Amino acid sequence: MITWLRIGIVFVVLFAVTLILLPFQLIGLAFDLRIRRYIPRYWHRAACFLLGVRIHVHGTIDRRRPLMLASNHVSWKDILVLGAIADVVFIAKMEVSEWPIFGTLAKLQKSIFVVREQKRRTGDQVSEIAERLAADEIVVLFPEGTTSDGNRLLEVKSSLFGAAAAAVPFTKQGVVHVQPVAIAYTRVHGMAMGRYHRPIAAWPGDIELGPHLLGVLKEGALDVDVAFGETIDFRTGDNRKHLSQAVTSRIRRMLLKHLRGRDYETL
């Protein structure tokens, strides 16, 4: 009974927060004001707090621009976590825009939706990514292309870094800074999660969203470590496969380190 009461309170409070912030975000989107960039951070922080997701940050986001964050992808909660840490914009599959609730939220954050199967639209999509990077927005890419079980890094698709390569000519200094990020869900109710319990946090694509979301709400206490690695400068003429290999190596190293457990600082 107490669990369902808490879940009800979470929904009511988050709905209230959404109603308060929504008018300001809509105005920001309508007139392309800078306010649209940082209002989502307040919403994401409120959502993480209400869901019981405690964020522990290691390292810092590179201050240089243009900046692309390349992160492993475990769950829809990754969006909340990274969005709570910084003012970021996400690159997402076009299908996400059609999802109930999550699709609307993605549109309100002005996510960049891409259609990977339609090469004829690649130019327009890359141009939008380049414009957002040139406008000093922090763009987040999940180069695995899908979610994992949280215990490992899936194969990183070098083709997805084509956006960074194509954006380089549009930047002032002829460089895109690509910073690897590792997201590791490590504890539930303060206890080490381990491989067996990590599916509580992870959301592989074959698991229905509804039951998974309900499971997260019932737990109400998850710890996630977010590590920011050494930035890689990608310039004209650089090989995107080499970039992919370097990013993969750094994400995997940070992910394993935090899954095994280390001291951390709380956001």
Results as ranks from 00 to 15, higher is better:
P143R: 03
R253Y: 04
K77D: 12
G210H: 13
T3S: 08
R6G: 01
L26H: 02
G229Q: 07
I35S: 08
L108I: 00
A182D: 02
W99R: 09
E144A: 03
L213K: 06
P23D: 10
L141N: 10
I35W: 00
I129C: 11
A86Q: 14
A246W: 13
Q25L: 14
H44T: 06
L21G: 08
V53D: 09
A86E: 15
A135N: 14
S111P: 01
L222W: 02
G261T: 14
G59N: 01
G174N: 11
E219V: 09
T236K: 15
A47G: 08
T3M: 11
F24D: 13
V226S: 08
L67E: 00
K172N: 06
V224E: 00
M94L: 04
P66Y: 00
V216N: 09
Y42Q: 12
R63C: 11
E219N: 09
A182Q: 01
Y264K: 07
Q173F: 05
I7A: 05
M1L: 11
V139P: 06
L213Y: 14
R187C: 09
S75Q: 13
L243C: 11
V53H: 08
G190K: 05
T147W: 00
R198W: 03
I207W: 06
L213A: 15
A165N: 07
G194I: 09
E98V: 03
L141S: 04
V114C: 10
E230K: 10
L160V: 05
F228D: 15
H177C: 02
